[in-house]
């Protein structure tokens, strides 16, 4: 029960930070500073756990798993935002709305693939990383092919 309470606190902190970034429309802390800070905190925790007598490999794996959980919590907010965006436009089907929806589905794909890559790296699942990376490479081609198909269909309809 104590662990669940700490998990809720951890989720609120991570999701709140991501929501703050989205609300601001820019990075609250620049990634070039945030990533070294997180790595430094990880090293301090590893040294602390090593000092308390825990095996080094177990300490690193445990902290990596907590980081992977943080990435999963962080991916939740953009995914829900994209879902709200998909519901937002109702029954409008004009060209501009198509391109907006294409962007929103691109956000869904990107969040899904980035979560797969980074969570897979942190829990030592290289199959997850490989599939996520392959999918990440294919996302721009998908979006471009869909927009291209819509554009030429629309031009054809205008020509008739």
């Amino acid at each position: 029960m104590i662990a669940e309470i700490f998990v809720i606190m951890y989720a609120i902190v991570v999701m709140g930070f991501v929501a703050w970034n989205i609300r601001k429309g820019a990075f609250v802390i620049d990634p070039s500073k945030l990533v070294p800070i997180l790595i430094f905190i990880l090293l301090v925790f590893v040294l602390f756990l090593r000092y308390t007598g825990l095996n080094l490999g177990v300490a690193v794996a445990t902290l990596m798993k907590i980081g992977a959980a943080g990435i999963l919590f962080a991916g939740t907010i953009p995914m829900i935002s994209a879902a709200v965006g998909l519901f937002r436009f109702g029954d409008e089907f004009s060209p501009n709305i198509f391109y907006v929806r294409n962007h929103i589905t691109g956000v869904i794909d990107t969040v899904a693939s980035l979560v797969m890559i980074f969570a897979g790296l942190l829990i030592y699942r290289l199959d997850l990383v490989a599939v996520g990376f392959f999918f990440f490479v294919l996302i721009p081609f998908c979006g471009n092919a869909l927009a291209n198909a819509y554009y030429y269909n629309y031009q054809r309809r205008l020509g008739k």
Binding site: A3, K65, A69, L72, F73
Partner: peptide, 23 residues
């Protein structure tokens, strides 16, 4: 800490799956 890591990962994956379902 190990219990916390397992619980956090389980609930993180679960919440992310719920978000995926909404999308």
């Amino acid at each position: 800490l190990a219990l916390f890591a397992d619980t956090a990962f389980f609930w993180g994956a679960f919440v992310f799956m719920v978000a995926c379902s909404i999308a």
